[in-house]
């Protein structure tokens, strides 16, 4: 074996050794679970009673979609959660980013302030908002009383008509910082000449936003939008920590239902079906968003 070949072989070996921990992690903790839960979704498998999964094909999916009323509740709740969450998080962070970008000073300060909730764990956010919205001691009800809106006070997480939206606010507050930073990055990349040219042509601030800023921001809107969209369906920690899916099942989400199926009923096949249906919905919505926002040039 030539010296050159030996060196090349050694280089490849080193490469493999350095990649080994990452590869083990990816295959062990991401690749295998995805493939195995995909297989489980075509089976009936009670983890406590059954030695092995029983293959049932698409029957489990059909039963889940057509006959499982809790799945229907979870899906409906998920949609009710996703729509306000998407609009609040996406548009609020976009508006804030545009406004912060207009500031001459303190851009970094505001960027940091809005990003800070991102570093707090979701369960801590849940506990914090449980206190803020506590019916008797909570800050939220107290503020309502102070401004003369005492009639609006209620048990926000204990009332089925408001519990889900309470979670929307808590999650939007936490997650807004990321999209804000993405949008600020996009705004910084828009050449100043373009806005200046628009101003010379007589465009006001609103026209600048509509005709210059937003078209140039499209790739960032796509990234931010898909991020928000994915997160609008990945909802588990808040309902688990704050409401346990209740009152009744008012805050049962798809992920939480998948968890309940797996870890309360030990029905691994059904849990995988819900997880895969959720993943399919996310992928489909992301594709639609990609279609409308992707730049062809």
């Amino acid at each position: 074996m030539s010296q050159e070949l030996k060196r090349k072989l050694w280089d490849k070996t080193k490469l493999f050794i350095f990649l080994l921990p990452t590869l083990v992690f990816i295959f062990g903790f991401i690749g295998f679970p995805i493939v195995f839960s995909g297989y489980l979704s075509f089976t009936s498998f009670n983890y406590a009673k059954d030695a092995l999964p029983t293959f049932i094909g698409l029957q489990g999916y059909a039963d889940m979609i057509l006959h499982d009323s809790l799945f229907h509740t979870a899906l409906l709740n998920q949609i009710k959660f996703a729509i306000p969450y998407f609009f609040i998080t996406f548009f609020a962070s976009l508006i804030l980013a545009i406004l912060i970008n207009e500031l001459k000073r303190w851009v970094t300060l505001f960027q940091t302030i809005y990003y800070m909730p991102m570093i707090i764990s979701m369960s801590l956010v849940g506990i914090t908002f449980s206190w803020i919205m506590n019916p008797n001691l909570g800050l939220f009800n107290r503020v309502l009383q102070l401004v003369g809106l005492g009639s609006l006070t209620r048990n926000w997480f204990g009332d089925p008509s408001t519990a889900l939206y309470g979670l929307v606010i808590a999650r939007s507050w936490k997650m807004m910082g990321f999209t804000l930073v993405v949008f600020l990055g996009g705004l910084a990349s828009i050449p100043g000449d373009l806005r200046e040219a628009a101003r010379i042509d007589g465009a006001n601030f609103w026209q600048e936003v509509v005709y210059v800023i937003l078209p140039n921001l499209k790739p960032y809107l796509l990234i931010g939008g898909i991020w928000v969209l994915i997160n609008s369906f990945k909802v588990f920690v808040l309902p688990q920590v704050v409401t346990e899916g209740g009152p009744g099942f008012a805050t049962l989400t798809l992920y939480y239902y998948s968890w309940k199926l797996a870890f309360e009923r030990l029905s691994m096949g059904a849990a995988s079906q819900v997880a895969y249906i959720t993943a399919f919905i996310i992928l489909a919505l992301a594709a639609v968003m990609n279609y409308f926002l992707s730049t062809s040039d």
């Binding site: 009323s69 809790l70 509740t73 089925p160 209740g246 009152p247 009744g248 099942f249 309940k260």
Partner: peptide
């Protein structure tokens, strides 16, 4: 119990 909870609590 899940089904009971869905309707009984409501």
């Amino acid at each position: 119990l899940d089904i009971m909870k869905k309707y009984l609590v409501d």
